[in-house]
Simulated scan of single mutants.
Amino acid sequence: MTAVTSLPKPTALITGASRGLGAAIARELAPTHELLLGARSGDSLRGILEDLPEATGWPVSLTDYDAVAEAVAPITRLDVLVHNAGIADLGTIAESSVEQWRNTLEANLIAVVELTRLLLPALRVASGHVVLVNSGAGLRAHPGWAPYAASKFGLRAFGDALRQEEPQLRVTSIHPGRIDTDMQRAIVAGEGREYRPEEFLTPETVASAIRNAVETPRDGHPTEIVLRPY
Score class of each variant (00 low, 15 high):
Leu123Ile: 03
Gln164Asp: 06
Leu7Glu: 10
Val125Lys: 11
Leu105Lys: 09
Ala39Lys: 03
Leu13His: 08
Arg27Gln: 15
Thr205Lys: 15
Arg102Leu: 13
Trp145Arg: 14
Gly192Glu: 05
Asn108Thr: 14
Glu215Gln: 13
Leu132Ile: 13
Arg140Asn: 11
Ala107Tyr: 02
Arg218Glu: 12
Gln168Val: 12
Tyr65Ala: 11
Tyr195Thr: 10
Glu34Met: 07
Leu62Asn: 04
His142Phe: 14
Ser41Cys: 00
Val82Ser: 05
Val72Leu: 01
Asp66Glu: 14
Val214Ala: 04
Ala23Phe: 04
Ser127Asp: 05
Lys152Ala: 03
Ile187Arg: 10
Gly128Asp: 03
Arg27Thr: 15
Ala213Leu: 04
Glu70Thr: 15
Val214Asp: 00
Leu52Thr: 12
Leu169Met: 08
Leu119Ser: 03
Gly22Thr: 05
Ala17Tyr: 02
Ala157Met: 14
Gln100Cys: 12
Trp58Glu: 04
Gly136Gln: 12
Ile210Ala: 02
Leu105Met: 13
Trp145Lys: 08
Tyr230Gly: 15
Glu199His: 15
Arg196Leu: 12
Pro143Val: 07
Asp182Gln: 11
Val133Thr: 05
Gly57Leu: 04
Gln184Tyr: 07
Ile179Glu: 01
Leu29Tyr: 05
His221Asp: 15
Ala73Met: 09
Asp43Trp: 07
Glu224His: 13
Arg40Pro: 01
Ile110Lys: 13
Phe153Ala: 02
Asp64Ile: 13
Ala137Phe: 10
Val68Tyr: 07
Arg228Val: 15
Pro59Lys: 09
Glu194Gly: 10
His33Asp: 07
Ile225Gln: 06
Ala12Cys: 14
Ser151His: 05
Glu199Val: 10
Pro8Leu: 03
Ala126Glu: 04
Arg196Val: 14
Leu52Pro: 07
Val226Ser: 08
Glu114Gly: 07
Leu45Pro: 12
Met183Gln: 07
His142Trp: 14
Gly177Pro: 09
Arg218Tyr: 06
Thr15Ile: 07
Thr2Val: 11
Glu114Cys: 05
Ile48Met: 07
His33Lys: 10
Pro143Phe: 09
Arg77Cys: 00
Val80Asn: 03
Arg228Ile: 09
His142Lys: 13
Leu35Asp: 00
Val133Leu: 12
Glu99Asp: 15
Ile225Val: 15
Gly38Ile: 03
Gly138Arg: 09
Arg193Gln: 15
Arg178Glu: 12
Thr32Ala: 14
Lys9Ser: 13
Leu13Met: 12
Arg163Leu: 06
Glu165Pro: 04
Ala30Lys: 12
Ala85Cys: 11
Ala137Lys: 04
Arg193Tyr: 04
Leu21Trp: 06
Leu155Thr: 11
Ala71His: 10
Asp79Val: 13
Ala30Arg: 03
Ala186Pro: 06
Arg170Leu: 05
Thr15Ser: 09
Val82Tyr: 02
Val206His: 01
Glu191Leu: 13
Arg77Ile: 00
Asp219Gly: 09
Val133Gly: 04
Leu29Arg: 02
His221Gly: 08
Trp101Thr: 10
Arg124Glu: 07
Pro53Gln: 12
Thr11Ala: 03
Ser127Glu: 14
Leu81Thr: 11
Ser208Arg: 15
Pro222Leu: 11
Gly177Cys: 10
Glu204Leu: 00
Arg228Trp: 07
Arg19Glu: 00
Arg117Ser: 11
Leu90Gln: 08
Val226Asp: 08
